[in-house]
């Protein structure tokens, strides 16, 4: 394990503020957590007496459940605050919400919000650490960590690997955080999308390669990740039809035949089967999609432990 890594009390807004050594520590801790959730008795007393608050201003049952179970596995108490749908309504004051919860003794906030940058805003009103569980189209660092861990666990490293992310890159916080994290860990990242779903200047911003032809994008890849396509993008006029999208950018058997023999197939879920990914690929031996869910729980346990389990470094001497 890398020396001098101390994540106690740290915020996690996105992976740009985490070093590769810190990410490696998160992976190693995740592995321990994963073995704990695989045994019969799945709970450990580590965070007894700590209170984790999940603040969800946007619907996401999967992510919320994963965080809450992670906290409970570590024996922390969990307060769940959901205000789905109201995130952009006027008159809602985040400040008052956080002040109220802080007064109840919350030790860590997990926040999902439709507005990018909001996790940092929560921290402005509270000195407790804040974990970003997805802010708008900006970042989703725990998803990226679990994606990266899923590859790291199978391949032993990310350094030098070729990873391809296919789909609606423009609207994907998952893609953004993965680009940052994977580049940091030494992977070569290719993003693949129709031109209307590709963010401007992405090559410059993240040092990744933009490719518009799926076949070219997957040929060399050690892992291929498909992103969920939101149906409403079609009505926004960003691509002509789901049929055409699926034909040009869906991961099907023909695409899989073009890849390396030991390629990993990934998807952050929930999948649109038959659109961005076909059953014969999603359920193939290459797929780690279901394992990604387990890894998500383990990664979140690791993060909660690393951030809450100890005394903050700044308080020492």
């Amino acid at each position: 394990m890398a020396k001098n890594v101390n994540l106690v009390g740290r915020n996690l807004y996105d992976l740009d503020t985490y070093s590769s050594a810190e990410i490696e520590t998160i992976f190693e801790t995740t592995q321990v957590m994963k073995s704990i959730i695989k045994r019969d008795y799945k709970k450990i007393p580590t965070l007894r007496g700590k209170t984790v608050c999940t603040l969800f201003f946007e619907d996401s049952t999967r992510t919320r459940i994963s965080f809450e179970l992670a906290a409970k596995r570590l024996s922390a108490d969990v307060i769940s605050f959901t205000k789905a749908g109201s995130s952009l309504k006027k008159g809602e004051s985040l400040q008052d919400t956080v002040y109220t919860l802080d007064a109840m003794g919350v030790d860590l906030y997990v926040i999902r919000h439709g507005c990018p940058g909001t996790p940092a805003l929560v921290h402005k009103y509270s000195d407790k650490p804040v974990l970003n569980a997805g802010d708008g189209k900006h970042a989703h660092p725990t998803q990226a960590l679990l994606d990266m861990f899923s590859i790291w666990e199978k391949k032993g490293t990310l350094d030098g690997l070729k990873i391809t992310i296919v789909g609606d890159i423009l609207h994907s916080r998952v893609a953004r955080s993965n680009c940052i994290g994977m580049k940091k860990m030494g992977a070569e990242v290719t993003v693949c999308a129709p031109r209307t779903l590709m963010p401007p200047k992405i090559e410059k911003v993240y040092g990744v390669k933009a490719e518009y032809d799926l076949y070219k994008a997957v040929q060399e890849a050690d892992a291929v990740m498909a992103l969920r396509i939101q149906m409403e993008r079609q009505s926004e006029g960003l691509f002509p039809s789901l049929g055409e999208y699926s034909q040009k950018y869906g991961l099907n058997k023909n695409v899989l035949e073009q890849t390396k023999d030991d390629v990993l197939i990934m998807h952050p879920g929930p999948m649109n089967r038959g659109i961005e990914i076909f059953p014969e690929v999603a359920d193939s031996e290459h797929s780690v999609i279901i394992e990604q869910v387990t890894n998500g729980l383990a990664v979140r346990m690791a993060l909660l432990f690393l951030i809450l389990g100890g005394k903050a470094a700044k308080e020492v001497k």
Binding site: L7, T25, T29, V32, T46, F305, L306, G309, G310, K311
Partner: peptide
């Protein structure tokens, strides 16, 4: 066996505990 996750002094230790797989 790694006992870090069961320690009763996690709040007081000054460095990030390293945990190993049991």
């Amino acid at each position: 066996l790694d006992v870090t996750l069961y320690r009763d002094d996690l709040n007081n230790i000054e460095h990030q505990p390293k945990i190993k797989d049991s």
